[in-house]
């Protein structure tokens, strides 16, 4: 129960941080870090894929409501949530899977960053491809994928470094 509450706080906090602060920060004019997906990355490793998908879709939908882009974030976060579980199973031995919040200190540096970078890239690629397609802004938008991914990953790195360390088992 306490863990659920913690995750809810993370989701609400990160969504507010994203909507109120990050969405107003335009690095080099157009690049915005999408830090709200960090809350999805942190979901427990053993969470069922149904719950994970539904949570991903809802979080994306909330972002969509705030940015007036119905379906765009939702499509990206749902895809991300769908890929998440297979990816965890790919990187972590099945015996190691336990109900834990995913973090740098638990997974270890190399696994965590591979996991993070892949999911961030999946999310951002989907998001900005959809943006480029639905708003017809063309190729220029595609420079957003690497730049915004970089920003998002930097922010996640910062959050991981300041969060309290969990000792690896």
């Amino acid at each position: 129960m306490k863990q659920v509450l913690q995750h809810v706080v993370w989701f609400v906090g990160l969504l507010l941080f994203q909507i109120l602060i990050l969405d107003n920060m335009h690095f080099l004019g157009i690049y915005i870090p999408m830090l709200y997906i960090y809350a999805l990355l942190r979901l427990p490793s053993t969470l069922s894929s149904y719950a994970s998908l539904l949570i991903g879709f809802s979080v994306g939908m909330i972002m969509d409501i705030f940015t007036n882009t119905p379906g765009m974030h939702a499509a990206a976060t749902t895809l991300m949530a769908g890929v998440r579980y297979p990816l965890i199973r790919l990187f972590v031995l099945k015996d190691d899977l336990s109900n834990r919040t995913i973090s740098l200190s638990w997974m270890g540096r190399s696994v965590f960053w591979r996991y993070t970078v892949i999911l961030v890239l999946i999310h951002h690629t989907t998001l900005y491809l959809l943006e480029a397609m639905s708003f017809m802004n063309g190729i220029a938008l595609l420079t957003k994928i690497p730049m915004c991914s970089l920003l998002t990953i930097l922010f996640i790195m910062a959050f991981e470094l300041i969060s309290p360390k969990e000792h690896a088992r």
């Binding site: 991903g56 879709f57 939908m61 969509d64 119905p70 379906g71 939702a74 499509a75 749902t78």
Partner: peptide, 9 residues
Amino acid sequence: LEGVALYLL
């Protein structure tokens, strides 16, 4: 869910 999202979009 993807279908709903893309339909909305």
